[in-house]
Write a protein that binds this DNA or RNA. Structure first.
Lengths: 246, 246
DNA sequence: TAGTGGTCTAGACCACCAA
DNA sequence: TGGTGGTCTAGACCACTAC
């Protein structure tokens, strides 16, 4: 139990040794979710390390989401995040997907505005030069936790006044008979920037799942271009694969 | 051009200011791929910062893959990684997928052994207690770059001697008429551990795409349980969504 | 051998939180 | 007000690379 914060000695860099000890203590339950760690200065004193080295050991664990630091308060073992499993075969919106699971969800709108289309947006939506687009940036919440950042772009003809749109973009589109029936989605992993981490209440550098989606109408026209950033620790995307023709 | 490494002043932490400058210089092409940065000590001298602060600014950029550091040599602007787009609707193996793109690929086998099944493996493969499994850990290479870590687990009845298996697991299975036709795959984003980063030649803490896959035979029995870790900067997984029944 | 990044230290000041 | 994490410094030694 208290062999975690004793003088370090052993193989490899000192910060790695301490880091491994804390990690093991959490994994083996000797440090439980919500437990507070000794103050950095005290860990330094007990281990015989400098505070800089102690902070380096802790920093990685914070980035991985195992520890949480609160300025003025202390360092704590993070409560494990409930993971959501999101299906990847059906085309649904965030709010519809959460509702299907019996989960609350809400959007915090960061910005909603119109402007000229950027080259990338023209390409994705099949717009001509000088056409206007509407952009909505939102933080998606569920269970009292920010789950994803979302930036949706639509032609201004579809959504002339983005600030007037209510909670669900898909409800808006359905009401206007512009509901997409098909989408192509690309996913990759990125490190969160400081600004992104702040909005998602995570540590800068933590892993996030970046998803770009272009949704199409029955006629084949693109109607929505959305770039999302999901918490890497809260989401599993599930997909079913079938044997190909090869 | 050389306004990057001048005395810093401005808003926010000093390391963030310097970091932003370097990032902007790379994005705007003032620093090109392959360019070397001044030595840390020289940056410190020119900016008026301490070396610790300079290192902190650089560390994040290394994690994001924008910079590469080589001990004894220097710090360089990273060459952008060619991204692979991987389809997510067809069930293929890594080597087959690369071949379809006209890419070379090879496996570096880290370990191949048999042993008693862990609970998680029993669950995934539908095995009884005390059954044996074969495990293969590989690094997947393509284009002279490590692309993914892969740990495949199969029943020892299917693969009694994992060390005798050749290059492609799926070729082996096809030869024995045990080729899976269906798979369920779960994806999420994680930060690479030091060991994982080392094998993938990335920085510790960089973002990786974790994929767990269970593949099934026509009869419905699970035959393969694979956990992979792909470079977050080299992969895009693409999937097509269709409107649901809702 | 000279220069580079990698590790580590002791000490300082600040902003913030809780009692 | 006292303790916490967040930032920053000046200096040291080591391991490695390139010459």
């Amino acid at each position: 139990m208290d062999d975690v914060f004793t003088p370090v000695a052993g193989a490899g860099p000192l910060y790695a040794v301490l880091q491994g000890r804390i990690e093991a203590a959490i994994r083996e339950g000797r440090l439980k979710p919500g437990d507070s760690l000794p103050a950095e200065r005290e860990i330094a004193a007990r281990t015989g390390l400098s505070r800089v080295t102690v902070r380096r050991a802790i920093a990685d664990l914070v980035r991985q989401g195992l520890l949480v630091q609160r300025r003025g308060s202390g360092t704590y073992v993070a409560r494990p995040v409930e993971r959501f499993e999101m299906g990847l075969s059906q085309l649904t919106s965030f709010s519809a997907d959460m509702a299907r699971r019996g989960r609350d969800s809400c959007s915090q709108i960061l910005s909603a505005a119109t402007g000229p289309a950027a080259p990338e947006e023209m390409m994705a939506l099949g717009l001509g030069a000088a056409e206007q687009v509407a952009r909505i940036e939102r933080v998606r919440w569920s269970g009292g936790m920010p789950m994803a950042l979302e930036r949706s772009v639509l032609s201004a003809e579809v959504l002339p006044d983005p600030s007037a749109m209510g909670g669900s973009l898909y409800a808006y589109l359905r009401a206007r008979d512009l509901l997409p029936v098909r989408a192509v989605q690309r996913m990759s992993a990125v490190n969160l920037t400081a600004a992104e981490a702040d909005l998602l209440q995570m540590a800068p550098g933590a892993a996030g799942l970046k998803i770009e989606r272009v949704a199409y109408l029955p006629g084949g026209n693109a109607v929505e271009f959305t770039r999302s950033l999901f918490r890497g620790d809260a989401y599993d995307f599930a997909v079913e694969l079938k044997a190909g023709d090869a």
